[in-house]
Design a protein around this nucleic acid. Sequence first.
DNA 1: CTCTGTGAGTTTGAAAAGCAAACCCTCATC
DNA 2: GATGAGGGTTTGCTTTTCAAACTCACAGAG
Lengths: 156, 156
Amino acid sequence: MAATKDPRPCSIADTLALVGEKYSLLVLREVLLGNGRFDQLVRNTGAPRDVLAARLKRLVEGGILTKRKYSERPQRFEYRATAAGLELDPVLMALMAWGDRHLRTEGDRPMVIEHDCGHELTAVVTCSACGGELRPGDRKPHPQAPGWTVAGPAAA
Amino acid sequence: MAATKDPRPCSIADTLALVGEKYSLLVLREVLLGNGRFDQLVRNTGAPRDVLAARLKRLVEGGILTKRKYSERPQRFEYRATAAGLELDPVLMALMAWGDRHLRTEGDRPMVIEHDCGHELTAVVTCSACGGELRPGDRKPHPQAPGWTVAGPAAA
DNA sequence: CTCTGTGAGTTTGAAAAGCAAACCCTCATC
DNA sequence: GATGAGGGTTTGCTTTTCAAACTCACAGAG
């Protein structure tokens, strides 16, 4: 039974517990750009080396990245995304789309991504069932966890 | 000119600088569920009260939330999402979709969301231009920031 | 063979952030 | 007058973060 002080059980929270620490998603961004080496990750994300080492360990243990040896002598490593790691790409695209819209003025975007369809890529999140773009208030949440309602824990 | 040690300029990084601290996105989740009061946020997210106060301050200053008085005497407040805050919902849905797929076994999802189309909502990220679902390797990134290539900072 | 450089971290010591629990203030109710 | 709710702030301690320095293994230059 969940103690009354436990937070809401939630896949958002669980996912953030794995990749929500500072730098983790920036590391994944770089790996997906093909920059999987330690010193590249330090330079491009700005993470302190010890913190980066800790994040990489966690991401590997969490099944997001793998560590590959790309040179035997001297030993040299590189991090790559697993299939699960690749599937976090939509999260990055959603964050980027939001930042481009709200944190920048038109025309000063630091990175433009060209989609294979020929157009500039702007990510949009849709419902897999109907294909429609998600809009505020177009849904009803149903908590499944026992003892929880939308508002919070049921009668203590 | 960007100093060589500056990290890559990036809207993902900028967005995370605003909402990427621990609890921030959980706070937003609760607010979007309609739970905008301080004590509800403490209970449902598990954030310590002082940390929550700091996060709320930052989210209000960042234009994600607003603080509304819902009772004059006694004075009582409630946090609500701004339009910009609402637009972060796709990020939450993408995180939730990933967690549901990778962190849970079929059938133990803590929250099911019913879309107005009548089906269960599963978020999928698509290209706004062609409507196709994003897939690994279906794009080419073009850094716009001077001094930066995909691999990192240009010639130091 | 020594000197310098690169990759991939680890160590160190000080500063900042996180945490739980206790506390505070205003009102409302019993 | 005591209790309780809401919305925080304060306190004292622990954990992280950070930047800089250090390590180790090897490679290539001189």
